[in-house]
């Protein structure tokens, strides 16, 4: 037990590990922020508007929800490489590039989940708003407010996906120590060095952090529903 505690202490003072944790969260935060905003917008838009080819788009989106991360990583790598179409950005092997690859994975997931929830909830809310004489903006606001628990859940899921992802991050980020090495790529490196104990310990740190975030979100949600009951 003492060994474990001293290891954790060492781990939180080790610069390389701290930087991996920092990179992981910076990347996950931006990836999650961008995909949440666009995913919620796309999801609600898909529910709201009817147009030709909508079914096809929904089907395509479901296909993309199952896209293997390495494929997303490969696509973004090819876009960002020096001789690629976006090579002048110089985003390859940077956190920006990693965020881009992650958005490619997460936006479809977010869109799909929000759309699914919206289909089952929004029609009733909209009817109610129209009956009450709300204008379009008020209606949209009410929809978002009424759906916030579902949206919470979607965002937490996507954040989890983001911090746990390794394939695309390895390809696009390049696992450069101190710059683009995340906790997951660090674990994969430790495994390749045959250092299993530290790999497992780092995995535990990742799990504990995921748990804390989950718990924090739950807490926020409970807080709000408690307010409502008064």
């Amino acid at each position: 037990m003492e060994n474990i505690i001293s290891w954790f202490r060492e781990c939180f003072t080790d610069e390389a590990i701290l930087s991996a944790i920092g990179v992981t969260f910076r990347m996950a935060f931006f990836a999650c922020l961008i995909s949440s905003v666009s995913g919620i917008a796309f999801g609600l838009m898909l529910e709201r508007f009817n147009f030709k080819g909508k079914k096809l788009i929904i089907r395509l989106n479901r296909t993309l929800m199952g896209m293997p991360p390495v494929v997303a990583g490969l696509v973004v790598y090819l876009l960002l490489m020096r001789r690629g179409p976006l090579g002048m950005l110089g985003w390859l092997f940077t956190i920006k590039g990693m965020v881009m690859a992650q958005c490619l994975i997460i936006v479809p997931v977010m869109t799909g989940m929000v759309h699914q929830h919206a289909v089952s909830k929004v029609p009733a809310i909209r009817e109610f708003c129209i009956t009450m004489g709300a204008d379009r903006r008020q209606t949209l606001w009410t929809i978002i407010k009424e759906m916030r628990h579902d949206i919470y859940f979607c965002v937490v899921t996507c954040f989890g996906r983001s911090i746990s992802e390794v394939g695309s991050v390895m390809l696009v980020g390049g696992n450069i120590k101190g710059r683009t090495r995340t906790m997951t790529t660090a674990i994969s490196l430790l495994k390749s060095q045959g250092i299993f104990t530290e790999g497992v310990a780092l995995g535990l740190v990742l799990l504990v952090m995921a748990f804390i975030i989950q718990w924090f979100c739950d807490f926020l949600q409970k807080e709000e529903s408690a307010d409502e009951n008064y």
């Binding site: 390859l92 696992n175 120590k177 710059r179 490196l189």
Partner: peptide, 19 residues
């Protein structure tokens, strides 16, 4: 000075990308 933490082939590709 950077550490890629990856195999030889991946490291060569990376070095070429980064000149």
């Amino acid at each position: 000075y950077m550490e890629s933490g990856q195999g030889m082939g991946a490291t060569i590709t990376m070095a070429d990308e980064q000149q």
